[in-house]
Amino acid sequence: MAAFDTSRPTYVAGSKGFGAYFASLIAAFATWNDTRRTRNALNRLSDHELADIGLVRGDINSL
């Protein structure tokens, strides 16, 4: 059985300016990368393993 830790610390930059823009850009990239890694890991599971966690192969793309 595999377990994935997808929690990340939240960094809050100032509410204005370049720092906030850069922080939101990094957060968007981290979210995209987490989703990509999760989809890849789920695609490597067999149909039986997916059924054990209550998913079907068609559900993976909706994540």
Rank of each mutant, 00 (worst) to 15 (best):
A28D: 15
T31S: 15
T35I: 13
L42Y: 02
N61M: 08
H48V: 12
Y11R: 07
E49R: 07
A30C: 12
S24K: 15
R44K: 08
R57C: 08
T6R: 11
F4Q: 07
S46K: 02
L42H: 03
L42A: 01
G19P: 03
A23F: 05
V12Q: 05
D47R: 03
R36P: 01
Y11V: 04
N40L: 08
G58I: 04
A2D: 10
D34T: 15
D47A: 06
A51V: 01
A41L: 06
S62A: 14
A23P: 04
R36S: 09
W32P: 01
I60R: 06
S46E: 01
T6D: 02
A28L: 14
D59W: 09
I26N: 12
N33I: 06
L55R: 12
R44F: 00
Y11T: 00
G14N: 07
S62R: 15
L45G: 00
I60Y: 07
Y11P: 03
D34M: 11
A27C: 11
D47L: 01
N43T: 00
S62L: 14
F4R: 10
G19M: 03
H48Y: 01
D52M: 07
D5T: 02
L25C: 11
G17R: 01
R8C: 05
T38G: 08
I53C: 10
L45W: 00
R36D: 11
A51E: 09
S7C: 07
N33V: 10
R44T: 10
R37K: 14
Y21M: 12
T35M: 11
S46I: 03
A30L: 15
R37N: 13
R36C: 04
N61I: 13
T35W: 01
I53R: 06
I53Y: 02
A3D: 02
W32S: 13
K16E: 13
R57F: 01
S62W: 09
P9T: 09
T35S: 10
I26R: 14
G58A: 14
D34H: 13
G17I: 03
R36V: 08
N61Q: 14
L25K: 10
P9R: 12
D59C: 06
I53A: 06
F18N: 03
Y21R: 14
L55Q: 05
T38A: 13
N43I: 00
S7K: 07
E49D: 11
P9Y: 03
R37T: 06
D59I: 06
Y11A: 03
L25G: 15
G17C: 05
N40E: 11
W32R: 14
G19Y: 03
F18L: 10
G58D: 14
D52F: 09
G54H: 10
L63R: 07
S15A: 04
D34V: 12
A2K: 13
G14M: 02
M1N: 05
F22C: 07
S24P: 00
G17H: 02
A23W: 06
D52I: 04
I60E: 05
G54W: 13
A2W: 07
R37C: 13
F4A: 09
